[in-house]
C-alpha cells in the first residue's frame, strides 16, 4: 500500500473518534486521568449518539462530580447530597417523555443517599442512575466510604479498614438487584479501552431502559481515585 501523508488522512480519511459537541468547552477540573472525566465523556457521547440533547434532564450530586453541569451541554438540576434519586423521581414523573438520569458517586449514593436510592429503585422509577464508585470520598480528601474495601487505607482509616471498627464494605448493587423495580443493572469498569467501550454500551442500555419505561436502570462504574492514595 502506498504511504499517505497524515494531512491527506485528516482530509480524506474518516473520523474514528472526535470530541462530542455535547461536551462543553469548559476545562474539566478533574485530576489527570480521573475516571469521572471518562464517564462524563461516555455519557455525553451516548446522549449525542441517541439524539437526546433536547430530551435529557440530568441530576447532579455532591462530590467530585458536582460541577458536571459545566461539562455536559444539557439542562441540569444540582441536587443536595444524596437526594438525587428523589429529585429525579419528581422530574421524571412530571416530565414522563424526558430522559432523566442522576450522576452520583459512592459517598453520595451509597452513604448519605442510601434511602433515596433504595426507594427510587424499589418504586421502579423510570430513571437512570450512573453510579461512579471509587470507594472513597474523593472531593473531601480521601476519607473512608461505606464501599471502601477491608484493609484499604484512607485518610480516616490510616491503619486500613477494619471490620470490627467500621463494618463491612457495602455492595449497594447486591442490595438493589433484589428489588423488583430495577429494570437494568450493570457493573462496569473504565480501566481499559475494551472496558470503556462496554461501559459506554451499558450507559446506552440504561438510557434505553428508562426511556422504554422498564424501571430503574443502574450502571455502577468501578473507578479509582488517582489522587487520594494512602
Amino acid at each position: 500500500m502506498k504511504r499517505t501523508s497524515t494531512d491527506t488522512i485528516r482530509r480524506e480519511g474518516r473520523v474514528v473518534h472526535r470530541r462530542t459537541p455535547l461536551l462543553t468547552d469548559a476545562h474539566m477540573h478533574y485530576c489527570p486521568g480521573c475516571n469521572h472525566a471518562t464517564v462524563h465523556r461516555l455519557v455525553a457521547e451516548v446522549l449525542d449518539e441517541m439524539g437526546l440533547q433536547a430530551d435529557a434532564i440530568g441530576i447532579g450530586s455532591v462530590g467530585c462530580s458536582v460541577f458536571i453541569y459545566n461539562y455536559i451541554d444539557i439542562d441540569w438540576i444540582q441536587a443536595s447530597h444524596g437526594r438525587a434519586p428523589a429529585v429525579a423521581t419528581a422530574v421524571k414523573r412530571l416530565n414522563p417523555s424526558r430522559l432523566v438520569f442522576t450522576y452520583q458517586g459512592d459517598g453520595d449514593l451509597a452513604a448519605i443517599g442510601t434511602a433515596e436510592t433504595i426507594h427510587a429503585c424499589n418504586r421502579g422509577e423510570n430513571i437512570a442512575i450512573i453510579y461512579v464508585n471509587n470507594s472513597i470520598y474523593g472531593m473531601t480528601g480521601g476519607q473512608m466510604a461505606p464501599t471502601t474495601p477491608l484493609g484499604m487505607r484512607t485518610s480516616t482509616t490510616p491503619q486500613g479498614r477494619d471490620a470490627r471498627l467500621h463494618g463491612y464494605p457495602l455492595d449497594i448493587c447486591r442490595l438493589l438487584r433484589r428489588l423488583s423495580g430495577v429494570g437494568f443493572m450493570a457493573r462496569r469498569r473504565v480501566d481499559t479501552p475494551r472496558h470503556i467501550r462496554t461501559a459506554k454500551q451499558a450507559i446506552r442500555e440504561a438510557f434505553e431502559c428508562s426511556l422504554a419505561g422498564r424501571g430503574t436502570a443502574v450502571v455502577e462504574i468501578m473507578a479509582e481515585c488517582l489522587t487520594n492514595k494512602f
Binding site: A86, V87, A90, A115
Partner: peptide, 14 residues
C-alpha cells in the same frame, strides 16, 4: 421528609 422536599426541589426546577 427529606425525599419529599427534594422531590419538590426537582419539580420546582422543571
Amino acid at each position: 421528609e427529606p425525599a419529599a422536599i427534594n422531590m419538590v426541589y426537582g419539580g420546582a426546577a422543571c
